[in-house]
Design a protein around this nucleic acid. Structure first.
Lengths: 240, 240
DNA sequence: CAGAGACTGGAACGGCGTTCCAGAGATGTC
DNA sequence: GACATCTCTGGAACGCCGTTCCAGTCTCTG
C-alpha cells in the first residue's frame, strides 16, 4: 500500500460516481426534469458523454441514485430515527409517521423530479427506505402483524400519490406562474364546469383555491392513521 | 345538407381523431408504454407521421385522450352512477366507492400505461372524472362539507399511488416473467436484506409473496374509508 | 371547370440515450 | 528505463424519437 501515489490534485478532479450524481441533482434542481441530459451533464463536468458511462450504467440508474441520495438524506435528517426502532424525537408513533411523511413531502416539494421518479420506479432502494421506516413506526403503534403490511403499503401509496401529483403540478407552472395564480386559475376552471356533469367538483372549487398543500396532505394522512388505529377489519372477509 | 356526398367508402377510412386514439390504445396495450411512437402509429394507420398532427396537437394530448377514453368507459360501465348522485347498483356509499376504485384499479391492471399517465398528468379530464364521482359518494356518506375535499383527495391520491406502483411493476416483468415469479424474486430479495437496516421489510417479506393485489388495494381503501367515517378531526387543530 | 379549402404523407431537423474506440495516464513487471 | 497493462477519458457516430415543413391530392363549392 506504500506504492499508492496520492497527489492531492491529479488533473482537476477525477470524475467519480458521486460527483456525477451530485451534478445530476444540481442540474435537475436548477433546470427541471427535462434538463437531465448526458450531454448537458458532460458539459457541466467538463467531459464527454462516454466518460459518464464508465461510472454509471445508464440514465435510469443515475436517476435512481439521485433520488436515493435525496431520500436517504431526508431520512436521517428529518426523522432522527435511523438507529433505533421507535422515533427518538417524536412523542407518539403517529407523530413519528407524520414527521417521516412530511419529510418525504417536503423533499418532493424541494425537488419535484423526485415525485415523478418515485412514482415510476420499481421497488428500488429509495422506496424501500421509506417503507421500512413507516413499517417500524407501525409496529410500535401496536398494529397486529398481519395488518402491518397493509398499513405500511397504504401509507406509502398515499404518499406516492400526493408526491406524483405535486410533481405534476410543479411541472405545470414551472417558473412563470406562481402557485397562487395556478391554483386560482384551476379553481376558476373548476367553478365553470358543467353543473350537470361536475356538481361536486364545482362545489369544492373554492376549497381548492384556499387550501394549503401541507395541511391537506397531513389531513389525508391522519385519515389513514385513524383507519389504522381504529380497528383492523371493518369489512366482512367474503372472498370474491 | 343534401349536397353532402356520403359514399360508403371513400378511399379506405378517413383518419379521424377517434381512429388515431383507438390505434394508440391498441398499440399501448399490445406492445407496452414505450411502443407508442408517431412512426409506429403512422404505419399502423397506413399513413405518415405528419398526417396525425392534423388531428392531434402532440404526444401529450394523444396520451391524455387515450387515458380519458379508457377511464370514461370504466366510469360508465363499472359504476353505473353517471346520472344520479348516489350509487345505483351499490347498497351503501362505501360499496359504491369500492366499486368505483376497483374499476380504476382494474383499468390500470388491464392497461398499465394508464397508471403511468394518471400519475404524471396535471389535473386533466381523466382525473377530474374520478375525483367528481368519488366526491359525490362522499357527499352521500354524510361527510361535513369542509372535509369533503380532503376525503376525496385522499382517496384519489391513494388510488393514484397504487396505480402508479402497479404500472411500474408491470413495466418490470413485462412478458417473460410471470407475476408470481416476480413477486417471489422480490420477496426473496427482501428476506435477504440487512437485518440491522431493514428489520421490518424482512419481516413482511412472506406477506409480499402471498398477497393479492386487489385484496390489498381494497384493504388500504377501507383504512381510508374508516378514517373518513370515524370522525373528522382526530388531531388538535394547532397551526404550525 | 377552376379555385379554395381540407387533408395527406414523405422528407428533413434537431436532440436524445447509448455505443464505440483511439488514446492518455498511472501502475506493475523485468 | 522500457515495456505491457489496466483504468479511465472524451469526442464521434448510430439509430430512434417528437415535431415541422411542404408539395401535393382529394373533395366540395361557386
Amino acid at each position: 500500500m506504500a506504492t499508492r501515489t496520492r497527489r492531492p490534485e491529479r488533473r482537476e478532479e477525477p470524475l467519480s460516481r458521486q460527483r456525477i450524481v451530485e451534478a445530476a441533482i444540481a442540474l435537475l434542481d436548477t433546470a427541471g426534469e427535462g434538463a437531465l441530459t448526458f450531454r448537458a451533464l458532460a458539459e457541466r463536468l467538463a467531459t464527454g458523454p462516454g466518460a459518464i458511462y464508465w461510472h454509471v450504467t445508464g440514465k435510469d440508474e443515475l436517476l435512481n441514485a439521485a433520488t436515493d441520495a435525496v431520500i436517504a438524506a431526508t431520512m436521517t435528517t428529518d426523522t432522527a430515527s435511523t438507529a433505533d426502532t421507535a422515533g427518538t424525537g417524536a412523542a407518539t408513533p403517529q407523530e413519528a409517521i407524520r414527521a417521516l411523511a412530511l419529510g418525504v413531502f417536503d423533499a418532493i416539494d424541494a425537488h419535484p423530479w423526485i415525485g415523478t421518479q418515485l412514482a415510476r420506479a420499481p421497488s428500488q432502494s429509495p422506496l424501500l427506505r421509506v417503507f421500512e421506516h413507516l413499517g417500524r413506526h407501525i409496529q410500535t403503534l401496536g398494529v397486529p402483524r398481519p395488518a402491518q403490511f397493509t398499513a405500511a403499503s397504504a401509507l406509502l401509496n398515499y404518499i406516492l400519490g400526493v408526491g406524483g401529483q405535486n410533481a405534476a403540478n410543479a411541472r405545470g407552472h414551472h417558473q412563470h406562474t406562481s402557485r397562487t395564480e395556478f391554483l386560482s386559475t384551476t379553481a376558476t376552471a373548476w367553478a365553470n364546469l358543467d353543473p350537470d356533469e361536475y356538481p361536486f367538483t364545482r362545489n369544492v372549487a373554492d376549497q381548492l383555491r384556499d387550501h394549503d398543500d401541507r395541511t391537506e396532505f397531513l389531513a389525508g394522512l391522519d385519515l389513514i392513521l385513524t383507519g389504522i388505529t381504529t380497528h383492523q377489519n371493518p369489512t366482512d372477509p367474503t372472498p370474491p
